[in-house]
Design a protein around this nucleic acid. Structure first.
Lengths: 209, 209, 209, 209
DNA sequence: GATGAATGAGCGTTCATTCAT
DNA sequence: CATGAATGAACGCTCATTCAT
């Protein structure tokens, strides 16, 4: 409070700077959605953002860094959503089947938002570096999953939990991808139910004997 | 047949034309592998292909169409491989578990080749159109899968086979993606085994009761 | 002759190409004279040359190479003039004094041309590389001088001819520079006479004893 | 003097202003040495000088004026050195030969420093104006030379002393240039000796008869 | 058909300069 | 006086595409 009074100028500057960055990111996001990565240019960004080209280069060292920043934000927010959702699950008194159903229900929530974000991502993936970064975030999701489902571990016949989490994560990712771009008319409710079956039976597998 | 006899000259021309197209596609493929989509230019393509820029524009209306053609070929060949592999499976006398193991073994064969092609693909996908086309091919793979595993259907507790095949296809695709770009040191043999478990238990699920 | 008939197309192309290069060099020369190196841009060059920017880059890989080419041509022509002049001197029956007078007379001929060229040079010197290149040409002049005046060597009291030639060359270069940019109204005839005295007495120096 | 007493505050301001100018000139000098004229920018100057871009424009109207100021300072200091050196010569009891030797010895002193400054100069000269200014300074050196060697005049067979001094000045300048950028391995001691011979024999020329 | 010289819109980026604070 | 965010003209250069030969 006092701080805000003492140093309003600086805060003003910081606000303005953050605004500029947001304008740039927003303009870039729009352009990527509309014309794809190959239709993206710094001149178009600044035109859309309502700033001058010089200003853009005061906040980003080059074009690539803008896309990078955008993707980081996107990946972070996707992963954050998942991590929060997982941590927020109340599994008290639920058996594994019910827990998986609950998780998958959450997983399919906000599908429209994810659809938009995923499209963006797919059209913007530019380098293996970005993929690597996305993976780092996926690891966070995997970790959250592992923690949350830990209570069920002792009852399950699983040798390698890291491998198991990995398989689940990427199977889900693939299915999400398929639903986004798949043939028209696939029923999401049906998909949710199938995914629950897939994951549950993978975890609660019969012993080999 | 008759045509070939009557007009061998024309066929010669067609051969030459097909050669030119192949040169162009081959050069484009190499350049995409070496420098990525952003490093691709029509001038570099014709230099590599050993033809003139004018000739390129007699076979393709613009640069984008070359990439499009290339991706179609790539997706077709990937799907063809899978379809052929599936059709070639000899499931005689195998139970479902053994059949799934066999399929997954094939799925992980030639992993290095797929790795290369997938990277290329991921860096080259530039429009939703390409993704749509890829899906059309995946449907062929799904169909082949459905046919091949039809003998096991009657023993399995599955309501919607289309949905089931869809889930399997994209789960596999996601895992393949994860293995390609995932953190170092993930064991492919372990992955193969986990994938077998995932798919088998999904198919041979216990009845709900 | 026959050649020209057989291959007129190619020659035409070569002619056109040479023309283009000449247009570019000429435009660059004009712009350097008018606005100096810092006022030189590829866009201005092509505007002046009446070609498109793309065409410029078919003949030169970058802007620097144009200036480089121009300077090479300039230095070569300056040195060629000197070398030709020296070789063309008829020293038959002349004593050293007369020979030096004759050389210096030639040296001051075409002063206007040299003035223009030297101005250009001074405003265009851009890197030590260019200076090095100029020196290579000066060595040619020095060599020509040494050959031409060889008949007089035996009568002169000189230990190190290479050093002597070096001193003469650069003393002349400095004086040329001074005359170009020196205070107004310096009499070139007087300068010529003084330079003759300078060089002659340097060569025909009294013995140390 | 009185001024300093009356208005010390103002002088403080003037001091600060002079400091700022010095910072700017110093930063510019460093950048020219490191990256050459084309690598010089106002933004880099203020960064190096530790001031803001706005401050720079309170002391200099534009970038060019900074370089101009710098070159003036450089030329002044080079000429001052020469003038001081000449005035400081003690020719008492020396004959002309000895006097010339002494002068030339001084001329070659601090060659390393001059080398650095001359390189800088050559890469920074961008307009005939700078050359004109340099000439004004050379006239001062010529004048000092004329005064210092006046005692020897009566014994020498020279018609036009202004022309003679001019020739000597620019001959030396040319040789200095040649030594700076000339082929490797030229011996400076040898050069000094040759230059002495050149100048001495030019001054102490035999009578025409 | 095949050629490749020519085009010029457009790119990413720099940097001298201004001006509100 | 000092600041530095903002500007935008201009830069060097690329490259998809055309068209006369």
């Amino acid at each position: 409070m006092a701080k805000a009074k003492i140093n309003p100028r600086k805060d003003g500057l910081q606000d303005r700077a953050r605004d500029k960055v947001n304008f740039i990111i927003e303009a870039t996001t729009q352009l990527l959605e509309e014309k794809g990565l190959s239709g993206l240019s710094t001149n178009k960004i600044v035109e859309r953002a309502g700033i001058s080209i010089g200003t853009l280069y005061q906040y980003f060292p080059n074009k690539e860094s803008i896309v990078h920043h955008l993707l980081q934000k996107l990946f972070n927010s996707l992963a954050d959503d998942m991590v929060k959702t997982i941590h927020g699950l109340d599994l008290e008194g639920l058996n594994l089947k019910q827990a998986v159903d609950l998780l998958m229900g959450r997983f399919f929530t906000n599908h429209e938002t994810q659809k938009k974000l995923m499209s963006q991502f797919l059209l913007s993936v530019v380098s293996v570096e970005h993929l690597k970064f996305m993976l780092k975030n996926d690891e966070r999701v995997g970790k959250a999953l592992k923690e949350k489902f830990h209570p069920y571990f002792k009852d399950l016949n699983i040798e390698d939990w890291d491998a198991t989490i990995f398989i689940i994560l990427y199977a889900l990712k693939g299915i999400q991808f398929g639903l986004l771009f798949g043939g028209p008319g696939f029923d999401h409710e049906r998909a949710r139910s199938e995914v629950s079956i897939l994951i549950y039976n993978y975890l609660d597998r019969p012993s080999k004997t």
